[in-house]
Design a protein around this nucleic acid. Structure first.
Lengths: 233, 233
DNA sequence: TCATCACATTTGTGATCACAAAATAGAGTT
DNA sequence: AACTCTATTTTGTGATCACAAATGTGATGA
């Protein structure tokens, strides 16, 4: 009889110079980000070690990192799980995304060159064509790139790790509404964001960012939540 | 001849059931938070292991955690250091604190009972008397407690780890202006915060929080920065 | 005085092992 | 059939060791 449950993690490229610990971290992080692991899933060190193909030591370090990013939760029994989602937590996460990402965008605005805005516009165009071509994986990946490029325009990107932490916390949950998992990253208001950037209008920028979040992840997340809670009732 | 540099970490209580990894984490974290380690300080695994009294393995995990909280920086050579502070980074951190802590306080407001507000007021009174008595360590510790209690009133404290990460990033830097290290935590606007809480006035609350940050850490930090940059020039 | 090269030391990394606690399974009893 | 207690397995934890890369040291040369 095979192991009760074998967790499969999507492959990610491994350059020659990355440590085992870093590789394990990237595999797990990517899996969490795209919703490949469901909330509540318990993770074992040895199990992951086998999946990733390294020894337990580097896996433990990767798990600690993810725990510190609040992507994983360490229970009192020392077992490590993907956190469960609740309506309250979801609302808090969305509200926090609005707060931090709007702030980060405003803080990036002074450093935003026309060239940079053109770059963002190009990425957005590629998102649209990937989406039209039905390539959800590409459009999801490009969407992340759009936001990262936007916030990383600030030469001192203090906000970036916080934003990524929030994305990581939201990622696993959106898997629960099966078909929505990929789709949710793709309903966007990037056109409005770019327009606000061009006008150097920080008020409009903050509004566009908030709309992007609340209309995209927010709406789909709420749908998913209703679905789960409905099923549970 | 003794080792070139032996890092001494302030003691922290160690309950029986905490793991070595958790203990190493707490020692280091506390040291960083109160400014016991200067920016730029390089940390070695073996060195810390000896200081803390555990083997290298748990120390490595503790270092990974702190790195993920952006309290430590992993260089390309894999050496781990306490990040340096710059004027830009300082301003970004302060601005981020204003953004996140104001948001968190507003989010906590609906859950704020009169009893809870009384608790906060009592803590604030103890801060004042500790400060008057010249017990800077106690007043610093109570100040942290004040903010933690405030933000943790929200039953789903998504903001808390982010705020703590920001405090951790600011902690080491304030040591550089020697005398200010402890003092900066004690110039506060807690009275205004409590008044806003009582009125359930979220606008006034956000303003009070921001004033607390900008008048306290902000001003002292800028003084310290000028001092360093002046010395460097 | 400065640069260069060889050697010793330090340091991060990761695999392995031993140990204890927790979870699981199974037998026995009520 | 439900419960309890015991034995087995699984799991997290932490120390140790081997290895390779980075760092530091010192002698030799221009």
């Amino acid at each position: 009889m095979p192991k009760p449950e074998a967790l499969s993690l999507p492959e990610v490229p491994r350059p020659n110079d990355v440590t085992s610990q870093e590789y394990a971290y990237r595999r797990l992080r990517h899996a969490l980000m795209i919703g490949a692991i469901s909330p509540g899933r318990a993770l074992t060190i040895r199990g992951l070690a086998e999946t990733v193909g390294v020894s337990p030591t580097p896996v433990r370090e990767a798990l600690r990192r993810l725990s510190s990013e609040n992507a994983l939760k360490v229970l009192e029994n020392r077992r490590i799980i993907v956190p469960e989602m609740t309506t309250q937590r979801f609302e808090e996460l969305i509200a926090m995304r609005c707060c931090v990402e709007a702030h980060a965008a405003e803080r990036a605005l002074p450093y935003m060159s026309d060239m940079k805005i053109n770059e963002l516009e190009m990425i957005d165009a590629r998102i649209d064509s990937a989406f039209d071509a039905g390539d959800l994986e590409a459009s999801t990946s490009l969407n992340r790139r759009f936001h990262t490029e936007l916030h990383a325009t600030n030469p001192v990107p203090v906000a970036l790790p916080m934003i990524e932490s929030l994305w990581l916390q939201l990622g696993p949950f959106l898997r629960v509404a099966a078909g929505y998992a990929q789709e949710y990253y793709t309903i966007d208001r990037h056109k409005e964001i770019i327009a606000a950037l061009r006008k150097r209008d920080s008020i409009a920028l903050a509004i566009a960012i908030e709309s992007d979040i609340r209309d995209g992840v927010g709406r789909l997340g709420r749908t998913a939540l209703r679905k789960i809670l409905g099923e549970a009732a």
